[in-house]
Write a protein that binds this DNA or RNA. Sequence first.
DNA 1: CGTATCGAGGACATCCAATGTCCACGATAC
DNA 2: GTATCGTGGACATTGGATGTCCTCGATACG
Lengths: 156, 156
Amino acid sequence: MKLSQGVEWGLHCVVLLAQDPDGAPVSRRTLAQQFALPETYLAKHLQALVRSGVLQATSGPKGGFRLARPPEEITALDVLEAIEGSASPFVCQEIRQRGTGGVPPEECRLPCTVSSVMAAAHEAWRASLRGVTVAEIRERLPKNVRERDVRATAPG
Amino acid sequence: MKLSQGVEWGLHCVVLLAQDPDGAPVSRRTLAQQFALPETYLAKHLQALVRSGVLQATSGPKGGFRLARPPEEITALDVLEAIEGSASPFVCQEIRQRGTGGVPPEECRLPCTVSSVMAAAHEAWRASLRGVTVAEIRERLPKNVRERDVRATAPG
DNA sequence: CGTATCGAGGACATCCAATGTCCACGATAC
DNA sequence: GTATCGTGGACATTGGATGTCCTCGATACG
Ligand code: SF4
Ligand code: SF4
Protein backbone atom coordinates (compact mmCIF):
# COMPACT_ATOMS: atom_id res chain seq x y z
CA MET A 1 0.00 0.00 0.00
CA LYS A 2 1.52 3.22 -1.12
CA LEU A 3 0.24 6.75 -1.31
CA SER A 4 1.22 8.96 -4.22
CA GLN A 5 3.89 11.47 -3.32
CA GLY A 6 1.70 14.03 -5.04
CA VAL A 7 -0.42 14.05 -1.90
CA GLU A 8 2.42 15.57 0.06
CA TRP A 9 3.02 18.09 -2.68
CA GLY A 10 -0.64 19.01 -2.82
CA LEU A 11 -1.00 19.38 0.92
CA HIS A 12 2.05 21.58 1.20
CA CYS A 13 0.97 23.76 -1.70
CA VAL A 14 -2.56 24.16 -0.39
CA VAL A 15 -1.30 25.02 3.08
CA LEU A 16 1.08 27.51 1.53
CA LEU A 17 -1.75 29.13 -0.37
CA ALA A 18 -3.80 29.15 2.81
CA GLN A 19 -1.27 31.47 4.45
CA ASP A 20 -2.49 34.25 2.17
CA PRO A 21 -5.93 33.18 0.95
CA ASP A 22 -6.92 36.48 -0.64
CA GLY A 23 -3.58 37.43 -2.16
CA ALA A 24 -2.68 37.41 -5.82
CA PRO A 25 -2.63 34.03 -7.58
CA VAL A 26 0.60 32.06 -7.26
CA SER A 27 2.00 30.52 -10.42
CA ARG A 28 2.91 26.86 -10.68
CA ARG A 29 6.51 27.92 -11.24
CA THR A 30 6.66 29.70 -7.91
CA LEU A 31 4.99 26.81 -6.12
CA ALA A 32 7.41 24.33 -7.67
CA GLN A 33 10.42 26.42 -6.70
CA GLN A 34 9.22 26.68 -3.11
CA PHE A 35 9.80 22.94 -2.68
CA ALA A 36 12.15 22.22 -5.60
CA LEU A 37 9.58 20.06 -7.34
CA PRO A 38 9.38 19.25 -11.08
CA GLU A 39 7.16 22.01 -12.38
CA THR A 40 5.27 20.24 -15.12
CA TYR A 41 4.51 17.23 -12.99
CA LEU A 42 3.35 19.36 -10.08
CA ALA A 43 1.08 21.05 -12.61
CA LYS A 44 -0.74 17.75 -13.11
CA HIS A 45 -1.61 17.57 -9.45
CA LEU A 46 -2.62 21.23 -9.33
CA GLN A 47 -4.94 20.57 -12.25
CA ALA A 48 -6.51 17.75 -10.30
CA LEU A 49 -7.05 20.07 -7.36
CA VAL A 50 -8.74 22.57 -9.68
CA ARG A 51 -11.01 19.88 -11.13
CA SER A 52 -12.03 18.90 -7.60
CA GLY A 53 -12.90 22.45 -6.68
CA VAL A 54 -10.15 22.90 -4.10
CA LEU A 55 -8.15 25.40 -6.11
CA GLN A 56 -9.09 28.08 -8.60
CA ALA A 57 -6.84 28.86 -11.56
CA THR A 58 -6.30 32.10 -13.43
CA SER A 59 -4.76 32.29 -16.89
CA GLY A 60 -2.46 34.87 -18.37
CA PRO A 61 0.35 36.91 -16.88
CA LYS A 62 -0.10 37.43 -13.14
CA GLY A 63 -2.18 34.30 -13.28
CA GLY A 64 -1.80 31.23 -11.10
CA PHE A 65 -3.60 29.32 -8.38
CA ARG A 66 -5.48 30.35 -5.29
CA LEU A 67 -7.85 28.60 -2.92
CA ALA A 68 -11.37 28.16 -4.23
CA ARG A 69 -12.80 28.18 -0.69
CA PRO A 70 -11.70 29.52 2.69
CA PRO A 71 -9.13 27.22 4.30
CA GLU A 72 -11.62 26.46 7.07
CA GLU A 73 -13.79 24.69 4.49
CA ILE A 74 -11.06 22.57 2.91
CA THR A 75 -10.30 19.29 4.62
CA ALA A 76 -7.22 17.13 4.30
CA LEU A 77 -9.49 14.52 2.73
CA ASP A 78 -10.50 16.97 -0.01
CA VAL A 79 -6.89 17.48 -1.01
CA LEU A 80 -5.97 13.82 -0.75
CA GLU A 81 -8.86 12.49 -2.77
CA ALA A 82 -8.47 15.17 -5.39
CA ILE A 83 -5.02 13.80 -6.13
CA GLU A 84 -5.33 10.18 -5.15
CA GLY A 85 -8.91 9.46 -6.07
CA SER A 86 -11.61 8.26 -3.73
CA ALA A 87 -11.58 4.57 -4.61
CA SER A 88 -11.15 2.08 -1.80
CA PRO A 89 -7.62 0.72 -1.51
CA PHE A 90 -9.10 -2.77 -1.22
CA VAL A 91 -10.25 -4.05 -4.57
CA CYS A 92 -12.40 -7.17 -4.31
CA GLN A 93 -11.70 -9.66 -7.07
CA GLU A 94 -14.50 -12.00 -6.15
CA ILE A 95 -12.23 -14.95 -5.64
CA ARG A 96 -15.05 -16.67 -3.75
CA GLN A 97 -16.64 -17.29 -7.14
CA ARG A 98 -13.66 -19.19 -8.46
CA GLY A 99 -12.00 -22.50 -7.74
CA THR A 100 -13.04 -25.74 -6.13
CA GLY A 101 -15.47 -24.21 -3.68
CA GLY A 102 -16.72 -21.59 -6.11
CA VAL A 103 -19.94 -19.81 -5.24
CA PRO A 104 -22.25 -19.04 -8.20
CA PRO A 105 -22.53 -15.35 -9.12
CA GLU A 106 -26.24 -15.28 -8.21
CA GLU A 107 -25.27 -15.70 -4.58
CA CYS A 108 -22.63 -12.99 -4.67
CA ARG A 109 -24.77 -9.92 -5.11
CA LEU A 110 -23.88 -8.65 -1.68
CA PRO A 111 -20.29 -7.98 -0.64
CA CYS A 112 -19.06 -10.46 1.89
CA THR A 113 -17.78 -9.84 5.40
CA VAL A 114 -14.18 -9.54 4.30
CA SER A 115 -14.88 -6.63 2.01
CA SER A 116 -17.18 -5.04 4.61
CA VAL A 117 -14.38 -5.09 7.14
CA MET A 118 -12.03 -3.47 4.69
CA ALA A 119 -14.63 -0.88 3.75
CA ALA A 120 -15.15 0.03 7.39
CA ALA A 121 -11.42 0.56 7.81
CA HIS A 122 -11.36 2.76 4.74
CA GLU A 123 -14.18 4.84 6.12
CA ALA A 124 -12.40 5.23 9.46
CA TRP A 125 -9.41 6.51 7.55
CA ARG A 126 -11.51 8.98 5.60
CA ALA A 127 -13.29 10.19 8.70
CA SER A 128 -9.98 10.94 10.37
CA LEU A 129 -8.83 13.05 7.42
CA ARG A 130 -12.21 14.70 7.06
CA GLY A 131 -11.88 15.98 10.61
CA VAL A 132 -8.87 18.15 9.87
CA THR A 133 -9.08 21.37 7.85
CA VAL A 134 -6.31 23.11 5.99
CA ALA A 135 -6.78 26.08 8.32
CA GLU A 136 -6.00 23.87 11.30
CA ILE A 137 -2.91 22.46 9.64
CA ARG A 138 -1.75 25.96 8.88
CA GLU A 139 -2.16 27.06 12.50
CA ARG A 140 -0.39 24.04 13.87
CA LEU A 141 2.61 24.17 11.56
CA PRO A 142 6.01 24.76 13.18
CA LYS A 143 7.06 28.36 12.99
CA ASN A 144 9.87 27.87 10.49
CA VAL A 145 7.49 26.33 8.00
CA ARG A 146 4.66 28.76 8.59
CA GLU A 147 6.66 31.91 8.09
CA ARG A 148 7.69 31.02 4.58
CA ASP A 149 7.08 33.94 2.23
CA VAL A 150 5.66 32.77 -1.04
CA ARG A 151 6.19 36.20 -2.58
CA ALA A 152 9.94 36.22 -2.04
CA THR A 153 10.81 35.02 -5.52
CA ALA A 154 7.77 36.33 -7.33
CA PRO A 155 8.44 38.77 -10.17
CA GLY A 156 8.22 42.38 -9.13
CA MET B 1 -3.34 4.14 -3.21
CA LYS B 2 -3.70 0.48 -3.86
CA LEU B 3 -3.73 -2.56 -1.63
CA SER B 4 -2.02 -5.73 -2.77
CA GLN B 5 -4.45 -8.35 -3.97
CA GLY B 6 -2.53 -10.78 -1.79
CA VAL B 7 -4.40 -9.31 1.16
CA GLU B 8 -7.66 -10.70 -0.14
CA TRP B 9 -6.02 -14.05 -0.79
CA GLY B 10 -4.53 -14.14 2.68
CA LEU B 11 -7.74 -13.18 4.43
CA HIS B 12 -9.74 -15.80 2.58
CA CYS B 13 -7.16 -18.50 3.25
CA VAL B 14 -6.90 -17.65 6.93
CA VAL B 15 -10.67 -17.61 7.31
CA LEU B 16 -10.82 -20.93 5.52
CA LEU B 17 -8.28 -22.42 7.90
CA ALA B 18 -10.22 -20.95 10.80
CA GLN B 19 -13.19 -23.13 9.92
CA ASP B 20 -11.25 -26.16 11.11
CA PRO B 21 -8.49 -24.78 13.36
CA ASP B 22 -7.36 -28.12 14.79
CA GLY B 23 -7.60 -30.23 11.66
CA ALA B 24 -4.72 -31.58 9.60
CA PRO B 25 -2.52 -29.03 7.81
CA VAL B 26 -3.78 -27.85 4.43
CA SER B 27 -1.27 -27.78 1.61
CA ARG B 28 -0.70 -24.71 -0.50
CA ARG B 29 -1.96 -26.66 -3.49
CA THR B 30 -5.32 -27.24 -1.88
CA LEU B 31 -5.60 -23.64 -0.77
CA ALA B 32 -4.76 -22.40 -4.26
CA GLN B 33 -7.34 -24.69 -5.85
CA GLN B 34 -10.04 -23.47 -3.49
CA PHE B 35 -9.89 -20.04 -5.10
CA ALA B 36 -8.18 -20.83 -8.42
CA LEU B 37 -5.09 -18.85 -7.49
CA PRO B 38 -1.55 -19.25 -8.86
CA GLU B 39 -0.03 -21.74 -6.46
CA THR B 40 3.58 -20.56 -6.32
CA TYR B 41 2.63 -16.95 -5.93
CA LEU B 42 0.13 -17.69 -3.19
CA ALA B 43 2.99 -19.56 -1.51
CA LYS B 44 4.85 -16.27 -1.19
CA HIS B 45 2.01 -14.74 0.77
CA LEU B 46 1.62 -17.83 2.91
CA GLN B 47 5.30 -17.66 3.74
CA ALA B 48 4.85 -14.06 4.83
CA LEU B 49 1.99 -15.14 7.09
CA VAL B 50 4.24 -17.79 8.62
CA ARG B 51 7.04 -15.29 9.22
CA SER B 52 4.57 -13.04 11.00
CA GLY B 53 3.39 -15.80 13.27
CA VAL B 54 -0.14 -15.99 11.90
CA LEU B 55 0.25 -19.39 10.27
CA GLN B 56 2.31 -22.42 11.16
CA ALA B 57 3.84 -24.57 8.43
CA THR B 58 4.63 -28.30 8.42
CA SER B 59 7.02 -29.91 5.96
CA GLY B 60 6.86 -33.28 4.32
CA PRO B 61 3.94 -35.35 3.03
CA LYS B 62 0.70 -34.53 4.86
CA GLY B 63 2.30 -31.19 5.57
CA GLY B 64 0.80 -27.77 4.94
CA PHE B 65 -0.45 -24.74 6.82
CA ARG B 66 -2.59 -24.27 9.89
CA LEU B 67 -3.32 -21.36 12.20
CA ALA B 68 -0.58 -20.59 14.68
CA ARG B 69 -3.12 -19.18 17.16
CA PRO B 70 -6.83 -19.57 17.81
CA PRO B 71 -8.87 -17.51 15.34
CA GLU B 72 -10.11 -15.36 18.22
CA GLU B 73 -6.57 -14.08 18.65
CA ILE B 74 -5.87 -13.24 15.01
CA THR B 75 -7.03 -9.84 13.82
CA ALA B 76 -7.62 -8.65 10.29
CA LEU B 77 -4.74 -6.26 10.87
CA ASP B 78 -2.40 -9.17 11.63
CA VAL B 79 -3.17 -10.76 8.28
CA LEU B 80 -3.03 -7.52 6.34
CA GLU B 81 0.27 -6.29 7.76
CA ALA B 82 1.86 -9.71 7.39
CA ILE B 83 1.31 -9.44 3.65
CA GLU B 84 1.33 -5.73 3.05
CA GLY B 85 3.83 -4.59 5.64
CA SER B 86 3.15 -2.16 8.45
CA ALA B 87 4.70 0.94 6.90
CA SER B 88 2.55 4.04 6.68
CA PRO B 89 1.08 4.62 3.23
CA PHE B 90 2.20 8.23 3.49
CA VAL B 91 5.93 8.54 2.94
CA CYS B 92 7.32 11.89 3.93
CA GLN B 93 9.98 13.14 1.54
CA GLU B 94 10.92 16.17 3.60
CA ILE B 95 10.15 18.59 0.83
CA ARG B 96 10.06 21.37 3.41
CA GLN B 97 13.85 21.13 3.43
CA ARG B 98 14.17 21.80 -0.27
CA GLY B 99 13.53 24.73 -2.56
CA THR B 100 13.31 28.46 -2.12
CA GLY B 101 11.86 28.39 1.35
CA GLY B 102 13.94 25.42 2.47
CA VAL B 103 14.14 24.78 6.17
CA PRO B 104 17.54 23.56 7.45
CA PRO B 105 17.65 19.90 8.57
CA GLU B 106 18.43 20.89 12.16
CA GLU B 107 14.92 22.30 12.43
CA CYS B 108 13.26 19.24 10.93
CA ARG B 109 13.89 16.71 13.66
CA LEU B 110 10.21 16.50 14.47
CA PRO B 111 7.63 15.50 11.88
CA CYS B 112 5.44 18.38 10.84
CA THR B 113 1.69 18.71 11.16
CA VAL B 114 1.05 17.33 7.70
CA SER B 115 2.71 14.04 8.48
CA SER B 116 1.07 13.92 11.91
CA VAL B 117 -2.34 14.23 10.30
CA MET B 118 -1.55 11.42 7.91
CA ALA B 119 -0.17 9.29 10.71
CA ALA B 120 -3.35 9.77 12.71
CA ALA B 121 -5.42 8.63 9.76
CA HIS B 122 -3.23 5.58 9.35
CA GLU B 123 -3.68 4.74 13.00
CA ALA B 124 -7.45 5.09 12.71
CA TRP B 125 -7.33 2.64 9.83
CA ARG B 126 -5.24 0.19 11.80
CA ALA B 127 -7.46 0.47 14.85
CA SER B 128 -10.49 -0.39 12.76
CA LEU B 129 -8.84 -3.53 11.43
CA ARG B 130 -7.42 -4.43 14.81
CA GLY B 131 -10.95 -4.52 16.20
CA VAL B 132 -12.02 -7.43 14.01
CA THR B 133 -10.84 -10.98 14.57
CA VAL B 134 -10.72 -13.81 12.09
CA ALA B 135 -13.18 -15.68 14.28
CA GLU B 136 -15.70 -12.85 13.88
CA ILE B 137 -15.25 -12.78 10.14
CA ARG B 138 -15.79 -16.53 10.02
CA GLU B 139 -19.03 -16.30 11.99
CA ARG B 140 -20.39 -13.46 9.91
CA LEU B 141 -19.64 -14.99 6.52
CA PRO B 142 -22.63 -15.79 4.32
CA LYS B 143 -23.65 -19.40 4.52
CA ASN B 144 -22.54 -20.37 1.05
CA VAL B 145 -19.03 -19.22 1.76
CA ARG B 146 -18.83 -20.65 5.23
CA GLU B 147 -19.90 -24.15 4.33
CA ARG B 148 -17.07 -24.70 1.93
CA ASP B 149 -15.34 -28.00 2.64
CA VAL B 150 -11.61 -27.69 2.37
CA ARG B 151 -11.18 -31.46 2.55
CA ALA B 152 -13.24 -32.18 -0.53
CA THR B 153 -10.28 -32.39 -2.88
CA ALA B 154 -7.66 -33.43 -0.37
CA PRO B 155 -5.86 -36.73 -1.09
CA GLY B 156 -7.36 -39.73 0.62
C1' DC C 1 17.89 -46.59 3.76
C1' DG C 2 15.12 -44.56 -0.93
C1' DT C 3 11.42 -41.98 -2.67
C1' DA C 4 7.69 -38.95 -3.01
C1' DT C 5 5.54 -34.95 -1.08
C1' DC C 6 5.75 -30.83 1.12
C1' DG C 7 7.44 -25.71 2.42
C1' DA C 8 11.51 -22.10 2.09
C1' DG C 9 13.67 -19.07 -0.57
C1' DG C 10 16.20 -17.04 -4.28
C1' DA C 11 16.59 -15.87 -9.30
C1' DC C 12 14.55 -14.44 -12.73
C1' DA C 13 10.60 -12.50 -16.38
C1' DT C 14 6.50 -9.65 -17.02
C1' DC C 15 3.15 -6.19 -16.33
C1' DC C 16 1.38 -1.77 -15.16
C1' DA C 17 0.65 2.35 -12.68
C1' DA C 18 3.35 6.22 -10.86
C1' DT C 19 6.51 9.42 -12.29
C1' DG C 20 8.43 12.75 -15.30
C1' DT C 21 8.99 15.41 -19.85
C1' DC C 22 7.47 17.78 -23.82
C1' DC C 23 4.58 20.23 -27.04
C1' DA C 24 0.38 22.50 -28.98
C1' DC C 25 -3.34 25.22 -27.61
C1' DG C 26 -6.35 28.86 -25.55
C1' DA C 27 -6.58 32.74 -22.21
C1' DT C 28 -5.03 37.05 -20.53
C1' DA C 29 -2.20 41.29 -19.07
C1' DC C 30 0.48 44.84 -20.92
C1' DG D 1 1.20 41.72 -30.90
C1' DT D 2 3.74 39.41 -27.48
C1' DA D 3 5.09 37.31 -23.41
C1' DT D 4 3.20 34.80 -19.54
C1' DC D 5 0.30 31.40 -17.71
C1' DG D 6 -2.86 27.18 -17.17
C1' DT D 7 -4.91 22.94 -19.86
C1' DG D 8 -4.51 18.70 -21.77
C1' DG D 9 -2.72 15.12 -24.47
C1' DA D 10 1.25 12.32 -26.12
C1' DC D 11 4.95 10.24 -25.02
C1' DA D 12 9.38 7.94 -22.13
C1' DT D 13 11.06 6.10 -17.80
C1' DT D 14 10.95 3.73 -13.52
C1' DG D 15 9.98 0.71 -9.80
C1' DG D 16 7.00 -2.24 -7.42
C1' DA D 17 3.46 -5.85 -7.89
C1' DT D 18 2.73 -10.00 -10.07
C1' DG D 19 3.96 -14.50 -11.65
C1' DT D 20 7.17 -18.55 -12.83
C1' DC D 21 10.82 -21.68 -12.05
C1' DC D 22 14.45 -24.04 -9.82
C1' DT D 23 17.12 -25.79 -5.82
C1' DC D 24 17.28 -26.97 -1.20
C1' DG D 25 16.00 -29.08 3.23
C1' DA D 26 12.37 -31.51 5.96
C1' DT D 27 9.40 -35.32 6.64
C1' DA D 28 6.11 -39.45 6.04
C1' DC D 29 6.10 -43.92 4.37
C1' DG D 30 7.70 -48.32 3.06
S1 SF4 E 1 -15.56 -13.10 -0.16
FE1 SF4 E 1 -15.51 -10.82 0.03
S2 SF4 E 1 -13.38 -10.19 -0.38
FE2 SF4 E 1 -13.62 -12.32 -1.10
S3 SF4 E 1 -14.14 -12.18 -3.26
FE3 SF4 E 1 -16.09 -12.22 -2.15
S4 SF4 E 1 -16.70 -10.06 -1.73
FE4 SF4 E 1 -14.49 -10.09 -2.32
S1 SF4 F 1 6.42 19.39 6.22
FE1 SF4 F 1 5.68 17.36 7.00
S2 SF4 F 1 4.98 16.19 5.19
FE2 SF4 F 1 6.21 17.94 4.46
S3 SF4 F 1 8.29 17.14 4.24
FE3 SF4 F 1 8.17 18.00 6.32
S4 SF4 F 1 7.54 16.29 7.70
FE4 SF4 F 1 7.11 15.63 5.54
